[in-house]
Nucleic acid binder design. Structure first.
Lengths: 115, 115
DNA sequence: TTACTATATTAGTATATACTAATATAGTAT
DNA sequence: ATACTATATTAGTATATACTAATATAGTAA
């Protein structure tokens, strides 16, 4: 069966269905982007990371590793994903690399994480 | 290597690290719960579903199937997950089963999805 | 009863995810 | 140069996820 199947209610709610389709279509891009962010925050380790960044501003990799009680490798891998998505940025100071939330993302993340 | 590894900054920021650990520990339960919700909304199909429910109140399975242009089986499977998490509830009317957002979840979901 | 409809569930599979372990990179210090 | 430190990346693996296809359930209607 494919998506052309429809129940008896089809004829009744055609308008509702069409408007829902239109709404989703108009939000397609935004929803894709949001889903990506949600998926990133849907991992407990990453959510903890971002919770730390929301509260502490700038943290280096090894401190995160300590705070989260995890090896450095998975920490770096998670940071990479968050950075690739634009939810984090990094700044080198000598050998140490500090991650933080870019200013343009702070409001969004605060509302998602604090709220 | 295990989590006892630490960088040269350890001694400098012990307080910051400890307070971050404490904060995470105090939020442990809430973060776990939030991560679950984010993970659910992190799937594009489910995010679309919840976006529909936020806007349309009550929708049946086959209408959703139509709106999302997907077979009924994966739709039911996603609905099951959302219902298991308490993000949706269902009500039977004859053969048709309507899903909707429980009133105690509306505010949270609206803030996550609309915002 | 039988046939039909809407939804749910299950089994199987393909892909994605998150880790471990090992190695690479790049800065610092001698 | 060599040795060391902080971080990044890669390969491999185990588990989770999201689908398809098939079947089960439960209400409706004849």
């Amino acid at each position: 069966m494919n998506q052309t199947e429809s129940c008896c209610r089809m004829s009744v709610d055609t308008l509702l269905i069409e408007s829902a389709k239109d709404m989703l279509a108009s939000k397609e891009e935004g929803l894709k982007e949001k889903a990506k962010i949600f998926a990133l925050l849907g991992n407990e380790v990453r959510l903890k990371m971002m919770t730390v960044f929301v509260n502490v501003d700038s943290v280096c990799v090894c401190d995160l590793s300590d705070i989260l009680k995890m090896n450095q490798s998975p920490i770096s891998q998670h940071l990479r994903k968050l950075k690739d998505a634009g939810l984090l940025e990094s700044k080198r100071e000598g050998m140490t690399i500090f991650y933080s939330i870019p200013s343009d993302q702070k409001e969004i993340l605060l509302s998602l994480i604090k709220g």
